[in-house]
């Protein structure tokens, strides 16, 4: 259990997907104008990353590794992610059409989110077992959601601030993102201890 907790802290904070690995920056800048939108997108992404990591682990373990098909990894994982998004969409539509109408907007956006593919490829590098890979994927996407929510909160405050005209909009957003990344670098001290 201690290993799993360390894995969660490492994936969510120390090696944060957005601020340490620079993945998923498009949605990081685009969907973080309001906290609730960011949280909605973050939860949908967390779900898809976790579910697709299960499929990626099975395909890597039972197909790509035994038959030495590593060169097909990226293409295969993209297919698995697209299938996971379709699966999620189908199931949510079946579970509750009203829920699908409310949340369906986020699902198509996830297919083009490079954080999803990035996490899947990191799982292969880590050579983990099933539970480790699923928990790693969950924790990485939790880190993604956390940063989205924090950044959205900062941008809501900045929208009310008197920012110089030249810095208004995306420039001050990028400056804030870089400061946030520097703050998260502080967590790397945890891995040194």
């Amino acid at each position: 259990m201690r290993d799993l907790i360390l894995l969660i802290v490492g994936a969510a904070l120390v090696n944060n997907v957005v601020l340490a690995r620079f993945l998923g920056l498009c949605s990081f800048m685009g969907v973080t104008t309001k906290i609730d939108t960011a949280v909605g997108m973050g939860m949908a992404t967390t779900f898809v990353i976790t579910v697709s990591s299960m499929g990626d682990w099975a395909i890597e373990r039972f197909l790509l590794m035994p038959f030495d098909l590593g060169y097909l990894r990226t293409v295969t994982f993209i297919l698995v992610i697209a299938a996971a998004v379709q699966f999620t969409e189908m199931v949510i539509r079946k579970v509750s059409p009203a829920l699908f109408q409310t949340l369906g907007i986020y699902l198509p956006l996830i297919t083009t989110n490079c954080a999803v593919l990035g996490v899947a490829l990191l799982l292969v590098e880590g050579k983990m077992n099933f539970i480790q890979s699923t928990v790693f994927a969950f924790a990485s996407s939790l880190g993604y959601s956390l940063v989205m929510a924090i950044f959205a909160g900062l941008r809501e405050r900045i929208a009310l601030a008197d920012v110089p005209r030249l810095f208004a909009g995306p420039p001050v957003g990028f400056v804030t993102a870089s400061l946030l990344a520097m703050a998260f670098m502080g967590f790397s001290g945890m891995s040194a201890n």
Partner: peptide, 16 residues
């Protein structure tokens, strides 16, 4: 906003 969060928790949080 509250409805969106509740819906997200129901659709994604519980199954996760």
């Amino acid at each position: 906003e509250r409805s969106l969060l509740r819906a997200s928790m129901a659709a994604y949080g519980l199954p996760l």
